[in-house]
Design a protein around this nucleic acid. Structure first.
Lengths: 197, 197
DNA sequence: TTTAAATACGGAGACACTCTCCGTTTATCA
DNA sequence: TGATAAACGGAGAGTGTCTCCGTATTTAAA
């Protein structure tokens, strides 16, 4: 799957760029306000553009959602590298998982939508998903190499688990629960953890 | 919250019962086939009844979903008591969590819908949710009393975590991942587990 | 500049889904 | 058997998604 960009033969049009930004801002507000099910046509209307324009820029709801949260996702991803440099392997992992919980919690009401970043829900194998996968893999590999944690599990599953907890537990206690879950997960992954039997 | 049944002054009509069953069967097939977003009108049409009839029996999508899976949920709940009687505390917990994973996995494609049984997504505080909560609480309390696991966590969060993993990991490897997650969770909950630092 | 080609725009409209309302039908029981 | 409570069905109003294509704007070449 080679990234075959169609070679831009000219400068992108300024109105197109303007509308794109306009749509992203409007969409962010709308999602925060009405949840992930906000009407796309209404977002277009509020942004002062036609429905066609919205769909041209963002063919699917997921594409729009991903674009809206791309920045914050990138910050989170960057933090992984940062933590890897400043913390011991398991500590870095734990800290990042806590950040991930915050990330999910900060978007309360948007969780269902954000699932598409952590789950196969979305049709497109989104770029953000890929980044997120790399971020957790980086931390996990490091901790596994140091021999502190078991190496037989996909880091992405950790995120799925945390997303599950953070998603469904409403209110501020949901975040507490997710934070507790981080410690349980980290403890359970350690090579020094008790075996199932 | 008293169960205030409206005192049936006559026998329930047979056609009503028949249609109810018909709808449940049709809905089960439809959900399995088209996912949780299957059109309710189409379910009604396929069942050979009017839309009004469907909505009279099941006012919301969630109500229908819950009804469809009530039986299986009840079996799962019953298994908790069973396991509690025949296994050591932690073993029973672990076994039941594995059953829960199977339960989720068996409904691949339906996961999003089933979330409403494990999450606050659904408006109604459904009876099945309540049962499920009791089932896990029962096992968890027992294991906590025996001193084997920490007592500061809500069992329902475990289910949320497992649901998260099982939901989003597509394919048969998703189930593998969820099974591994069970062991991590159980290990992490043990009082003998290593502390976060 | 002017102008042709490329690009983007907008919104009408086709289609799908949800859910309600109410006139009609059917089952129950006296 | 007849009265009536209970249930039925489906038309239709309201809302949403997404496409299509004639029109408008921008870019860059002349």
């Amino acid at each position: 799957m080679v990234d075959e960009k169609p070679v831009p033969s000219r400068k992108p049009r300024v109105d197109a760029q303007r509308n794109r930004v306009l749509l992203l801002e409007t969409a962010k507000a709308a999602f925060a306000d009405k949840g992930p099910g906000a009407s796309l046509d209404e977002i277009a209307r509020t942004a002062g553009v036609g429905a066609g324009t919205l769909y041209r820029h963002f063919p699917t709801r997921d594409a729009l959602i991903e674009a809206v949260y791309r920045n914050e996702t990138e910050q989170l991803v960057a933090a992984a590298t940062q933590l890897a440099e400043t913390h011991a392997p398991v500590g870095a992992l734990r800290e990042w998982l806590l950040l991930f919980v915050d990330y999910m919690a900060a978007k309360r009401g948007m969780q269902e939508a954000l699932n598409s970043l952590v789950g196969g829900t979305s049709e497109l194998y989104s770029a953000s998903t890929e980044q997120m996968k790399r971020a957790i893999a980086q931390l996990l590999d490091r901790a596994a190499e140091s021999g502190d944690i078991r190496s037989d599990l996909d880091g992405f599953d950790l995120l799925r688990a945390l997303a599950g907890v953070a998603n469904l537990g409403a209110g501020p206690d949901g975040m507490q629960a997710a934070r507790r879950m981080v410690d349980i997960l980290v403890a359970g992954m350690r090579t020094s953890a008790p075996s199932p039997e």
